[in-house]
Design a protein around this nucleic acid. Structure first.
Lengths: 154, 154
DNA sequence: GGGCCATTTGCAATTTTGTTTCGTCCGCGC
DNA sequence: GCGCGGACGAAACAAAATTGCAAATGGCCC
């Protein structure tokens, strides 16, 4: 599916605030509300819009600590990697998980209420998994920019 | 502000799909639509709900490459750290930025169309900044779990 | 124990928003 | 030049959000 300038402008607005009325979007880009609505529907259908979500404040919800963890595994067979992916994906404290090249195999973004919770998590996920060779933790002191915004060209 | 069970259930729904009608939410948790609406308004007011956004597919929008970068700076004076934060925050390719303790000072999540774009970015952000001591890049091969979901207790 | 205040609820009315319909226009290929 | 497909806007329509209001609930002081 190919996008024109209208589509990109709509997406730019929606990824900042998807509760913006379609009528308002239309006014901003010189299009009628139904036209906006049809374009949104099409992009949602095409999977360009993956989800519509509320972004919550982790600290206000009892998870003030953000951690980064690089995990290196011992055996990188397809089966073991798949198993690791599944395990990470189903752990709620793991907010984000990527499989990477380089010195590490996985990068995780983790949210916890306190360090004791992280300690318990490491015991379960890393020490309790004999395919984990090594992991390295970085503790976030400041969340300067969080979000899922995608750069939308010019 | 303190939250009860209703609030947490509402948030759980909204952070998965904030386009869910309030009436539907109400039915799911046994509350009327106006009650749901008032709770959402209050939580938004309190900053617990930080934003409402559409999540877009980076690959579909021409940014198929996700990178992690750890940046170590030379001088960690308050002024220089603040300047670095501002610079990272205003760079659109930097989707996420955290100030961390440990071996590195910053962790960045970056989206680019291709490696040449990243190369140009490193030149501008890191080589072009004489307070950057070192940076280490990890390339994402698979985005297993992306999102901003916060674990919501029981 | 009784009464009072604050809070929150549900219902119903109102307003706003999203969605569908329909006729028109534009660009393209035949 | 003619017909076709796609996208548009205006208007009608449906659905959702929002507001006003009265009633229920719960704590607290007397």
């Amino acid at each position: 599916m190919k996008l024109d300038d209208f589509d990109r402008k709509i997406l730019a607005i929606l990824q900042k605030d998807n509760l913006t009325p379609q009528r308002t979007i239309g006014e901003a880009i010189n299009l009628s509300a139904p036209a906006v609505q049809r374009r949104i529907a099409k992009m949602t259908e095409a999977g360009i819009i993956r989800a519509n979500v509320a972004v919550l404040d982790p600290a206000a919800l009892g998870n003030p600590i953000t951690l980064f963890v690089e995990v290196e595994v011992i055996s990188e067979t397809a089966a073991q990697i798949e198993e690791a992916k599944r395990e990470f994906a189903r752990t709620p404290e793991i907010q984000q998980c990527y499989y990477v090249t380089g010195d590490a195999d996985f990068v995780l973004v983790i949210l916890v209420p306190h360090m004791a919770a992280y300690e318990a998590l490491t015991r379960r996920l890393f020490f309790g998994n004999n395919n984990v060779k090594r992991f390295r933790t970085l503790v976030a002191m400041d969340r300067i920019k969080t979000g899922l915004e995608v750069p939308l060209g010019a």
